[in-house]
């Protein structure tokens, strides 16, 4: 890449904490989806480091004052991987961890795809139908500029999502308006529902495309949490372009039978599979697993 991430070093303790957060987000994703019976584990597992980096290190936000003026904002454009977002929100303190067990169930705030009307203090925009989030993120970034606040806006898109035409409209808008306060992450796991992205509808060379659209582009290992934190730092002040961070990720990361398998975009997850996944991931460290309200173990 022409541009590289700003150098950034985490203390060993901090790095461990973020690793533990990402690990717990994975355990929560498996537990919540198994309890729901089905869901979208693959992409969520692949974005665990990003969720941990944003909610535990990078973003200026406050669970005790969710609507804090000048807060940074996160837009999950590929809304189907919301099990990871919900876990990050709960672990950051926005709502009780046990509520994760209501995901996808009737009456729950934790809808199958994020719904702002259900979680107005935590979800900046509803998402699910792909290709919509970057436009909303642009609007949030423009509003911050109009208001003269330093708020930064982060968006996450899937790589298959780059096939949606509106994404490229929004890519042009962000560059046209020089939205330096905007960072778009693309989870580049090379898989989508019907198979390999390059077989279904190729998007490569993605970095070169985005650069030619006048974006600053950084490409990193999306599972290297220090690299993710570094890539999420503000661009050099003299560079007015929006930033794209291409996260090389593995669908289903951390769960051996899910890794790199398009089938785990979404579907059923049995309790037996969940048990196998959790034991493969390894025990919770630094966090407590989700428990039922009465304190009993879920899995």
């Amino acid at each position: 890449m022409n541009s590289t991430a700003t150098s950034f070093v985490l203390s060993p303790e901090r790095r461990d904490q973020l690793h533990q957060a990402a690990h717990q987000i994975r355990r929560d994703i498996i537990t919540a989806i198994a309890v729901a019976g089905d869901g979208h584990p693959g992409g969520a597992l692949g974005a665990a480091e990003l969720f941990a980096a944003l909610y535990f290190e990078v973003m200026h936000h406050n669970p005790r004052e969710p609507q804090m003026p000048g807060r940074d904002r996160f837009v999950l454009s590929n809304g189907h991987i919301c099990a990871g977002l919900y876990s990050a929100l709960a672990r950051a303190g926005y709502f009780p961890v046990a509520e994760l067990l209501t995901h996808r169930k009737i009456g729950s705030r934790l809808q199958g795809h994020p719904a702002r009307t259900h979680l107005p203090d935590m979800v900046e925009t509803s998402s699910g139908p792909l290709g919509q989030g970057l436009s909303v993120a642009n609007g949030l970034a423009l509003a911050a500029r109009l208001d003269g606040v330093q708020s930064r806006v982060f968006a996450l898109l899937g790589d298959g999502e780059m096939q949606e035409g509106q994404v490229w409209e929004a890519v042009m808008t962000a560059a046209h308006y020089k939205l330096q306060n905007l960072t778009m992450f693309v989870s580049y796991n090379r898989l989508q529902i019907d198979g390999a992205v390059e077989d279904v509808m190729g998007i490569d060379p993605l970095a070169a495309k985005l650069e030619s659209f006048q974006w600053r582009v950084v490409e990193i290992d999306g599972h290297d949490i220090e690299a993710v934190v570094a890539a999420a730092q503000p661009a050099p002040t003299e560079d007015h372009r929006p930033t794209a961070v291409i996260l090389r990720t593995v669908m289903g990361k951390g769960v051996s039978f899910m890794e790199d398998k398009a089938a785990w975009h979404g579907g059923k997850l049995s309790m037996e599979q969940a048990q196998q996944a959790l034991s493969g991931l390894g025990p919770a460290i630094g966090f407590d697993d989700i428990r039922h309200m009465d304190g009993t173990n879920v899995i």
């Binding site: 925009t125 436009s135 642009n138 609007g139 208001d147 509106q166 409209e169």
Partner: peptide, 24 residues
């Protein structure tokens, strides 16, 4: 207070939503 969005109606509606969700 004006944003020219070019020929991209879907993007305009999404951007409008973002601006509105931030108080406009």
């Amino acid at each position: 207070q004006f944003f020219q969005m070019g020929i991209s109606e879907g993007d305009m509606m999404g951007t409008a939503a973002g601006l509105a969700l931030a108080g406009k």
